[in-house]
Simulated scan of single mutants.
Amino acid sequence: MDFFLVEGKQSNPNCSTLILPALSIGNVGQLAVDLLISSLQAERIGYLDDPNVLPCVGNDAYTASPGGDLALPLEAYESLSSGLTLVQQRSPVIKGMMIEYAKNLASFSAASGKKHVIILSSLDFGKWKSVDMSR
């Protein structure tokens, strides 16, 4: 996994927590990362290139009027005020390549000095069999 900084940007070593989405039911993890990026006014500092993630491209999702900035499959954002690095993943991992992708992501996290990794996901509530709602 290669990390490329946006021209003129640099990664802040004080951002020691990495938050990323798991592509799951309803895209809840991705939507939560979108909300964090927007509400924290996190700045895009770069993007990740991994051969195990399907390519995609779109328009910048965080501006009211499209400025022509491309959104890529794996983008890195930082919020200096909260000390967070956020990775937004917009396309799925190639079938059968999840282990390799996870290894690459773990290597990236360690190499960039992240102390904590938080993965945001979702679960199909209909598949829960024994939930005690009385507590």
Results as ranks from 00 to 15, higher is better:
Val87Thr: 07
Lys127Asn: 08
Tyr47Ile: 10
Tyr62Pro: 01
Ser11Val: 00
Ala106Leu: 03
Leu72Trp: 08
Asn27Phe: 05
Phe4Ala: 10
Leu5Gly: 13
Gly58Arg: 05
Gly83Ile: 13
Leu72Cys: 07
Thr17Trp: 06
Asp2Met: 12
Ala32Gln: 04
Arg135Thr: 11
Met98Gln: 15
Gly67Ser: 06
Ser11Gly: 06
Asn14Ala: 14
Tyr101Trp: 13
Gly126His: 08
Pro66Cys: 02
Leu120Gln: 05
Tyr77Cys: 09
Met98Asn: 15
Met133Cys: 12
Ser16Pro: 13
Ser134Val: 12
Gln30Asn: 13
Asn59Ile: 13
Asp132Val: 15
Leu54Asp: 09
Gly67Arg: 10
Phe108Tyr: 04
Cys15Lys: 00
Gln89Pro: 07
Pro21Gly: 10
Leu18Met: 04
Val53Trp: 05
Ala76Lys: 03
Cys15Leu: 09
Thr63Gln: 09
Val6Tyr: 06
Leu18Glu: 03
Met1Gln: 09
Glu75Ser: 06
Val57Cys: 04
Gln10Glu: 03
Pro51Cys: 14
Ser121Asp: 09
Phe3Gly: 00
Pro92Thr: 14
Ile94Asp: 09
Glu7Arg: 11
Val117Phe: 07
Cys15Asn: 10
Ile119Gln: 03
Gly113Pro: 01
Lys127Trp: 14
Ser122Lys: 10
Tyr62Ala: 01
Asn14Trp: 10
Pro66His: 03
Pro13Glu: 04
Leu105Asn: 06
Ser134Ala: 13
Tyr62Phe: 11
Pro55His: 11
Ala111Thr: 12
Ile25His: 04
Lys115His: 12
His116Glu: 07
Met97Arg: 14
Phe125Ala: 14
Leu35Met: 12
Leu105Val: 07
Leu18Pro: 00
Leu36His: 00
Cys15His: 04
Tyr62Lys: 10
Leu54Phe: 12
Pro55Ala: 11
Gln10Val: 00
Phe4Ile: 15
Glu78Gly: 04
Gly67Trp: 02
Ser122Met: 07
Pro51Gly: 15
Phe125Ser: 11
Gly126Glu: 08
Ser109Phe: 01
Gln10Ile: 00
Gln41Met: 07
Ala71Leu: 02
Arg44Phe: 07
Asp60Arg: 01
Asn27Pro: 03
Asp69Leu: 11
Leu123Val: 07
Trp128Glu: 11
Pro73Met: 12
Leu40Ala: 05
Ala61Tyr: 11
Arg44Met: 11
Leu72Lys: 06
Ile99His: 10
Leu5Ala: 15
Ala71Asp: 08
Ile19Glu: 00
Val28Trp: 05
Val87Phe: 06
Asp2Cys: 15
Lys127Leu: 14
Glu100Gln: 14
Ser134Lys: 01
Val53Tyr: 06
Leu74Lys: 06
Glu100Thr: 13
Thr63Lys: 10
Val28Lys: 08
Asp132Arg: 12
Ile45Phe: 02
Ile19Thr: 03
Leu36Ser: 03
Val33Arg: 00
Glu75Met: 08
Asp2Trp: 14
Ser65His: 02
Leu20Tyr: 08
Gly113Ser: 00
Met97Ala: 09
Asp2Ile: 11
Val87Gly: 01
Leu80Gly: 04
